[in-house]
Design a protein around this nucleic acid. Structure first.
Lengths: 248, 248
DNA sequence: AGCAGCGCACTTGTATACAAATTTTGCAAG
DNA sequence: CTTGCAAAATTTGTATACAAGTGCGCTGCT
């Protein structure tokens, strides 16, 4: 269906960062870019709004969703609630096959983490690491045997990725204290992964919930820091812009 | 905006039970009923799909969402996760004003419950009771200070209401053992409400979570029973229909 | 030079027209 | 009387045309 074509087209660009948060999505531009009329584009935008990736304001048009710190924190809260509960469910319902899948993702994560810490060139591994991380989380959600929760969590993951950063490409090459501050965090994260795994393995519901919640809290703190930095930088930028007005 | 008019129109009928689960929603019928063209109707249907109230299958049209037992259980799981977490948040963040609001709803519930048990005529009170119940829950969600979670929970409540029953009007006037079986449940529910309230009052996070989860579990069990009955009755109905074919 | 007000271009929202697809109806054969 | 098939009738999805609202720039004034 043409409407789906438009949906995929726009969604891809949002997820890849080509359309960053705040980017205006005008129906006629999109329709000529995709090669369909405005009707299926409007349809696609409504679906993307349902995903939370796009916001449509009447008469003002659609744009890629942006979030302030407050909303982002709330989003993280939602994730904690859902993923924590799902981890508990996984501990209850997991089969051996599920456990095997989780183990596999965990091992990949482990080796990637070690390679990442040792590597000089960070960027190529960073992507793989993120991918394995979602694989790990998805394996757990699958083991929880609740498709509704799984879909919802996936949705939140995507939304989180989109709003939390203008994609990794826009990052400075090597901030001075970045490496030092990030790597202890990484091994900590890996330890948390293993605790979650252990709890699910021995079918300990509340331990699984707690471990997952703690894990997300620590991830969230990190995200919030980088997000706060980004917001500060934005404000700084605006100030300098105003200063430019003053100096002219 | 006309699209909103269509949205409200359809939504109201779904929530009131006039369009029961499974009811086909055809764009031309709706458009002439509402007095707008098919375009805003399609738009409205997409929004309702985002709410989960409508399902659109390509080329097959839209219909009011139906759920089988499995999906319903999953929905309830979602509610447990979200409302449990939100109760914990409420215990953390509640102000005295929040508590006052909750108290008010709780008191209304208490007196209504007592009147309900004593009353001969059940139906008029039943509606008030349900309304006060959501008021109680909403007061807690408000105290949790997380609008995203609050909106999500409200969405789930509505969805739950729509799929769980073909509206109260379609219920038998007075099933014989219904009153006996329902009233202990009701006072039990009221006791659970009070436990939730107490936990939030004394800012006991995990007690609030546990109480809310237990409360929902008991509600859910009840819903599942009635839902299973409904499904059985449906199957029975279909069988008799087939039997009719045999007898003719 | 700065600012107010007006008008134009652009964009959204809605209606209508048309093509594709699905369901239903009618008909004929077993 | 049932079953299978074909064609008509709905119904969806898409394109296009048009009305209405928004924002921007331009001109003219102070």
């Amino acid at each position: 269906m043409n409407s789906d074509k438009a949906y995929d087209f726009i969604r891809e660009r949002i997820l890849s960062g080509e359309y960053p948060p705040g980017h205006a999505l005008m129906t006629n531009v999109l329709s000529s870019a995709i090669g369909v009329s405005r009707t299926p584009v409007r349809d696609a935008l409504r679906q993307l709004e349902a995903d939370g990736l796009v916001i449509i304001r009447p008469r003002l048009g659609a744009s890629v969703k942006t979030m302030d710190l407050k909303e982002f924190r709330e989003l993280c809260g939602l994730r904690v609630a859902l993923e924590g509960y799902a981890a508990g469910l996984a501990a209850q319902h997991r089969t051996d096959a599920d456990l095997h899948e989780i183990t596999f993702a965990l091992e990949s994560l482990k080796s990637l983490t070690e390679r990442f810490i040792a590597a000089a060139e960070e960027q190529p591994i960073r992507g793989e690491l993120a991918q394995e991380d979602v694989r790990f989380h998805i394996a757990i959600m699958t083991a929880a045997r609740n498709d509704l929760i799984k879909r919802e969590i996936l949705r939140l993951h995507l939304l989180n990725r989109v709003v939390s950063g203008p994609a990794p490409k826009n990052r400075e090459p090597a901030p001075p204290d970045f490496k030092a501050s990030r790597h202890p965090h990484l091994s900590e994260v890996q330890a948390e992964h293993e605790q979650i795994y252990e709890a699910i393995k021995r079918r300990d519901v509340s331990a699984a919930e707690d471990a997952m919640e703690k894990h997300l809290q620590s991830i969230v703190e990190n995200s919030l820091r980088t997000m706060a930095r980004a917001e500060n930088r934005l404000i700084a930028k605006e100030l300098t812009k105003e200063e430019l007005n003053y100096t002219t």
